[in-house]
Amino acid sequence: MLASFSSANAASAPVMRFSAEQCCLSIAQFHLAYAGKAALRDLTLDIPRHRVTAFIGPSGCGKSTLLRAINRLHDLNESVTHSGHIQLEGQDIHDATMNVTELRQRVGMVFQTPNPFPMSIYENVAFGLRLQQRLPKRKRDDIIEWALTSAALWDEVKDRLHRSAWQLSGGQQQRLVIARTLAIQPDVLLLDEPASALDPISTLKIEELIRNLKSQLTLVLVTHNMQQAARVSDYTAFLQHGELVEYGPTDQVFTNPRLQRTENYITGRTT
């Protein structure tokens, strides 16, 4: 066991590059630490446009941290320090010219537990729109219908748009949160274990939605569920101890991993 571990470390970090027009997010030598304790170390990877990229790895490996870093959610926490670069369409997200609210409008995020606001379904979807600008009601209604349709929720809620969002089921709430994010038309959608709190049928619906959405935007999915990663993602990155272990097309990572560590994790053997 010790031998396989060291052999994995000996292997050079797998870098998979995409050309500039294919690449949506580019992460380079990114370090992040909570109160001096490193959570992400020297991460370098490119995320392709209009594809689903999945981050997998054991709990605490840093995959959610990375996702939150892309949305600069760590800005809220003073004890977080970072170095390195994350570029969105060639622009560094930590750059002084980059406006954080604008970044978050371009990079939507969906969390583990559904978090609809305590308002009506309509107001939930309109929330992000209202922040940006005043739209005529007709236009806003159109966008809301489009967002709910894209999130495969329109048929279920069109008759009760003005009811409380908290009355929806967990799966519907999660799709509402996705619709809410879609309404402000982000380039990237980050999904942090979006189905982990849901029942199997709702999970299937979310997965189908993810596959459908990649024609519109770039998706990054963090998941604990190996089958889910295999089912929905085009590329898979395996992280461990805050480091990128392996990154490649999903088929290759799951059927023919280059490293023993990856294979051990995927097949459920302890490392």
């Binding site: 922040l131 940006q132 600008q133 159109d142 489009w146 038309q185």
Partner: peptide, 16 residues
């Protein structure tokens, strides 16, 4: 069925 892009008109005011 993609709606037109939203302009980001109120950014500086909101920041302020």
């Amino acid at each position: 069925m993609t709606p037109p892009r939203l302009p980001l008109s109120r950014q500086p005011l909101r920041q302020l």
